[in-house]
Design a protein around this nucleic acid. Structure first.
Lengths: 121, 121
DNA sequence: GGAATCAGTTCCCTCAAATGAACTATTGGG
DNA sequence: CCCAATAGTTCATTTGAGGGAACTGATTCC
């Protein structure tokens, strides 16, 4: 994904990096403070994407990407059992406006049921 | 995708429907007025997602979904050669704020090259 | 001694999405 | 007669993402 430069177009760049059903949902969690790996797993349960929960492989893969991109920091404490905390960087925190825009749009224009309103034009 | 109700969480709902590298890029096009199928194909070339251009199958599949969800209208003119225009509904047009948020974030926080800044914390 | 805890990794499998290329019907124009 | 143009569809194939399940290492609690 970072093997060659990202697209010129900012939107395309965003989509390259934050693609997939999980990416933005993962980013949302540490907005309320640092989160541990297992904590993230637990909180990403039952969001009802048709998916039961996130696979640890998927989660660690996304987290590694985010750390690489500077959206998240990873802090490991040499304890037993191990403790690792993921925290948003300022850049990561700034994704909150995107999340807010997505949420607001969906609340207004994307009902849960298949009964979609016909807008007059 | 509409076989059973969408998730309760608005963000998850957004991601269910507007997932994939192409969805938001397609929506962006008719913001500047109705667009024809071939026109969309042409404009979606060279965005550099590592992809050369969009496959017509992918495009027609997304357009069909958007029409179903009420984000886009499809108007066919019985001419030869055929002409079909895709236009955003008010709901589709409201996605502009999401696109703007994505773009602004990427411009500020997602550089093209792998040299990502380390933010002080 | 055995179980539990945590943060992942590894293996194998499946499935949906995307791709490339060819093809359709229709008619006007050279 | 043959080609071009439009809006797709169809076929066959690949790729990557995700899923399930099991496993690791170190240490503390029971």
């Amino acid at each position: 994904m970072l093997d060659h430069p990202l697209p010129e177009c900012p939107i395309a760049r965003f989509l390259t990096v934050l693609d997939g059903p999980w990416a933005m949902l993962i980013v949302r969690e540490p907005l309320t403070g640092p989160k541990r790996f297992t904590e993230l797993r637990a909180r990403l349960h039952g969001l009802g994407l048709g998916l039961p929960g996130i696979n640890p492989k998927t989660l660690s893969s996304r987290l590694r990407r985010f750390v690489l991109l500077g959206l998240v920091t990873r802090r490991a404490y040499p304890e037993v059992p191990p403790r690792v905390e993921y925290e948003l960087t300022p850049a990561g925190t700034r994704l909150e406006v995107v999340l807010a825009a997505m949420g607001a749009w969906a609340e207004q224009d994307l009902p849960r049921t298949g009964a979609f309103p016909i807008e007059d034009r």
